[in-house]
Simulated assay, not measured.
Amino acid sequence: MDLRPGRRAAAASLSLLTGLGALGLAPAADARDHGHGSSGGLEVVATGLDNPRHLDISGGALYVAEAGVGGAGPCFAGAEGDTCYGATGAITRVRHGRQTRVVTGLPSAADPGTGGGAVGPSDLVVRGHRYTVALGLGADPGERAGQPRGIRLLGTVATGRLGSAGLRVVADVGGYEARVNPDGTDLDTNPVALLPRGGRTYVVDAGGNALLRLGRHGGIRTTAVFPSVVTPVPGGVVDMDAVPTAVAQGPDGALYVSQLTGFPFPVGAASIWRVVPGQAPTRYATGLTNVTDLAFDRDGSLYVVQVTDQGLAAEAPPLGSVVRVPRGGGAAHTTVRGGLLLPYGIALHHGSAYVTTGSALADAGQVVRIPLR
């Protein structure tokens, strides 16, 4: 018996959590107050964020992609039902202890009741006064047809200038999914992560199960497609989508891609994939759970974010962790910090890990600093 969910889990994984705000969940013990501070070895460096996802460190500042809270609409069919648009996405900068939203008014779509589980700004690269941003969609790219420009910007990679919400599309990832459909299954696109490398940019399409390469003039090519994962369930098996979530360059020059896995989001089923362009992906690290980001340190150790340690479908509180995978990969890994509420993105800097938490919640997201030495 082969039970197929029939839809992607890239956006569904966060949409599954949109009701958390109604459960009265507070940030984990590392960040109970709404001001900056420290507790249990963690320092809270940013608060009050809306669905914060990936981070970038540039020019001595930390930048955070906030997926926003959606708005009053128009609404369209998302991964878990109607999702409503609003220009509420943002980029927050933290510099010299000061937190500022340096870009507001970016495209966003979220649960109309809670503003949680949003799609919109998911990753960013900042160079000087300009930024490039991956704008998630988590739906069939055809849902954008006939919609206002803000919705049509979802599912793209775009660029703009700090201080302005004006965007120019660099590449239409959703359009590529509609034309090419790299994994050959149902149409779904959700560009969620970026990696500039060698004059080109790699994009992770969590909905399309693919790693894409952007050319200098907006062209897109498929670098890798990730296989589905078969997991046993009572009465049969589920053929889960891979759901890649982030990409980093390793010390060997290869690309490494993290994996969330699709429904039912089982514990220990996620992997880190090693990608050499022109070759099939191979597993580098295994036994992980619902991974959303990864980063290498200078000695080749890999730090990985698990958005929940018990799996997204578990009834337990959605607490995740940062784990360390030793150089060489494999199934062994060590928990660096657990008990984090919905952690998502990670950036390493001067012996510390900066991690977004509350990643599927409106006005409850944070960035925490975790000392690694």
Rank of each mutant, 00 (worst) to 15 (best):
L162N: 03
G163C: 12
L167T: 11
L137H: 11
T159M: 15
R168A: 10
P148W: 13
A139P: 05
G160N: 04
T159L: 04
G163F: 07
G150W: 01
A165N: 14
L154I: 14
P148Y: 12
V170A: 15
G142C: 14
A139C: 09
G142M: 15
L153M: 12
G146H: 15
L137A: 04
R149A: 10
A134S: 08
G163P: 11
V173L: 13
V157A: 05
A139R: 14
R161G: 00
R161A: 08
R152Q: 10
G163T: 05
A165T: 13
G136C: 03
L154D: 06
G166M: 02
G160I: 01
G155W: 07
V133C: 00
G163V: 08
G146S: 14
A171S: 10
R130V: 07
L162S: 05
L154F: 13
G136Q: 01
T156I: 13
L167I: 04
V173M: 10
G142V: 08
Q147F: 00
T159C: 11
V173P: 02
L137S: 02
R130L: 05
G150C: 07
L167G: 02
G166V: 04
V170S: 06
A165M: 01
V169N: 05
G146T: 07
A158S: 15
R130Q: 10
V169P: 08
L162M: 05
